[in-house]
């Protein structure tokens, strides 16, 4: 999943409004940031065993839980951070094809191969996340403006990625 992960971060904001959105966005993309680091280090694995397998993502979630909990003493917030990290794995199973554990099977619906279906699923995730996030915003005379900007920008970003997918069948991460 691409921009759909932002939907999970926005939903996390609704679950615990005191958590900074930056923390939730980093949590939502944690496995992809690990992939980037591995790519720069020259040890990238195209299947994502070290970044997207079940044990890896649970390790990142535990790290996020411990780090956020120790810094803020907000252990309920730490649970939300861990849940947002874990959401990456579940969302990627819908759109991608990811490893389960070393020696285990690959899993996922591979919607990346169908950019229109991918846009639909990611769009629904973005929409749900944005609607949940909308409830965290301060009261305004025209609250739908801010929500529309968020929803429109995220959908436009997702659409750009899906069009790029349609034009170039292969977009290697590393």
């Amino acid at each position: 999943m691409y921009i759909g992960h932002v939907g999970a971060a926005l939903a996390g904001k609704r679950a615990r409004a005191s958590i900074g959105l930056l923390v939730l966005l980093v949590a939502a993309y944690a496995p992809d940031w690990v992939d980037t680091g591995l790519c720069l280090a020259g040890s990238y694995n195209p299947h994502g065993m070290l970044s997207h397998s079940i044990p890896s993502v649970f390790l990142f979630a535990l790290t996020g839980f411990a780090a956020y909990g120790m810094v803020t003493r907000d252990w309920r917030g730490a649970l939300v951070v861990a849940a947002v990290v874990l959401s990456h794995m579940f969302l990627d199973w819908i759109t991608g094809y990811k490893p389960t554990w070393p020696g285990g099977p690959m899993m996922g619906l591979r919607l990346y191969e169908h950019p229109i279906a991918d846009f639909f699923v990611e769009g629904v995730t973005i929409f749900i996340g944005t609607m949940l996030y909308a409830r965290t915003l301060p009261p305004r005379r025209r609250p739908w403006v801010d929500v529309s900007i968020m929803l429109g920008a995220l959908l436009a970003l997702q659409l750009t990625i899906n069009i790029a997918q349609l034009l170039t069948k292969s977009l290697p991460k590393c």
Binding site: I3, H5, L25, D32, D35, T36, L137, I149, L154
Partner: peptide, 30 residues
């Protein structure tokens, strides 16, 4: 060399996906 270019592109995409919602959120809470 190629993998550095890919990494830069990947980092760019992650930064956009992170910074864009942050900027919109900051505007919405002003």
């Amino acid at each position: 060399m190629d993998h550095y270019l890919y990494a830069v592109r990947f980092i760019g995409a992650l930064l956009i996906a992170t910074l864009l919602p942050l900027l919109i959120d900051r505007r919405a809470r002003r």
